[in-house]
Design a binder for these strands. Structure first.
Lengths: 260, 260
DNA sequence: GTCACGTCTC
DNA sequence: GAGACGTGAC
């Protein structure tokens, strides 16, 4: 039997918001350590990796490892039925072909349960190597989202360039070109507002705006985002979910095109 | 001559919002007691009954009974031209074929009038018997609206089941199934937030989601809604409009289908 | 093309 | 909480 309870359903609601535009279905792997999800997006361009640790749940029980293939559209519909202050509990019997979500209002006067059929999904196990990156940039997640949204008005690609001067986000298109330069914050009064750049080697890479915009759907999960880059390897965009885990997005850089 | 004035046009605006999706036209019956409207919806499935008592108006005069056939689309367009704080006055000459709406801004600086042609509508007089019901449920209108919207994601029908344990709203469909259980509120600190269940006989009935969702367009008219049910008779969904009347929706239960 | 719904913003 | 905008369905 599997059972995982969160006092605040909003975490799970936000997680779904953060992945549903990239994935139509996905496998939730549950074991003693928690819940893990790894999947290529529908277009096999980006990779999503979610971890929710067992100790981050308010109750967690997993007698046997279970892999649950979920239709994320259906799951999103169900989670929309939870109030932000509701408690949510996911339950599945061993070897069951359904999962049940139970929502309880804070005063216990409203209890709702939703049973969803599971899917048989091919297990694609993705080995993601832990890597050292030439540059890591931490910044407020809302600021990153704003930049991606702003720049995507002008072109389909964003060039991220990290040097000792700071980090620069650039794009160009029919309208013209745009550059946003970000310097490391001098004082770290407010941790959430800090921009912190660690650079061993300067790196310049180009990415598809559309995917960065998909990634920023995770903005409400964390006040900060971390970008990790090295030449010729996928960018990692990581949102740490307080007290419970993280969601990481991987996106391969575009091969440099002509500058016509 | 007929004349009816409301200091707050918002009441009439909300009434139109609450009926315009169900009715394309309707007859307003005006007499000494006030304004009444009763009509089957466009598909002849649900019934709408509106009462605005004369004493709820800030001025009310009705020399002779008048029946005004209104195109509700046109009337809605006109009412959208009124500010929420405007005073609205409906006027009609005896035997006229038009009705006039006059809107006056609070400071009297803006006065607008809109004349609308009336329609000749067949008078369908609907005798609605006053009945005792086996169950009545009062609950916050927003909560009812939320439940109807949530459940309609999963199926076309909602089963409402009222027993001594409380009231349960259920549905099922391709995705899976859903149940929302509501218990009577223990304390009635805030009257508007109370759930109050009166049950003489347990009742379980099935209704079309779509119509319940139409009914919830009346949500902003009242903080509370009352559902009345007896076996084999139409559900009544009533919103009391403070100080002036009510709007009631009647919906026949679906005949039980096979449970395949 | 129209209508209704959901989302986002003020 | 209400109004406006954009999107999806008929």
């Amino acid at each position: 039997m599997f059972e995982a309870r969160l006092l605040k359903s909003s975490i799970l609601k936000k997680v779904l918001e953060a992945i549903k535009d990239l994935l139509t279905q996905a496998t939730f792997d549950c074991d003693d350590n928690g819940i893990q999800l790894q999947a290529m997006d529908n277009s096999h361009v980006a990779l999503v990796s979610l971890l929710l640790r067992a100790d981050g749940f308010d109750k967690y029980r997993c007698d046997r490892n279970v892999t649950m293939g979920m239709n994320l559209g259906s799951m999103t519909k169900i989670l929309k039925c939870a109030g932000d202050k509701d408690t949510v509990t996911m339950k599945a019997q061993d070897n069951a072909d359904t999962v049940t979500f139970v929502f309880e209002s804070p005063n216990q006067e409203k209890v709702s349960d939703y049973e969803m059929k599971l899917m048989n999904l091919d297990l694609e196990h993705l080995g993601i190597p832990e890597t050292e990156y030439s540059c890591t940039i931490r910044m407020p997640s809302a600021e990153f989202a704003r930049m991606c949204r702003d720049l995507s008005q002008f072109g389909e690609s964003i060039v991220i360039s990290c040097t000792k001067e700071g980090v620069k986000f650039s794009t160009s298109g029919d309208i013209g070109s745009a550059n946003i330069k970000l310097a490391q914050t001098a004082s770290i009064d407010k941790e959430d507002e800090a921009v912190i750049i660690e650079m061993d080697e300067p790196v310049t890479l180009t990415f598809a705006c559309q995917y960065l915009n998909y990634f920023t759907k995770a903005t409400s999960l964390s006040p900060q985002v971390q970008l990790s880059m090295s030449a010729d390897v996928p960018l990692v965009v990581e949102y740490r979910i307080p007290d419970i885990g993280h969601i990481r997005y991987y996106l391969a850089p575009k091969i440099e095109e002509d500058d016509n």
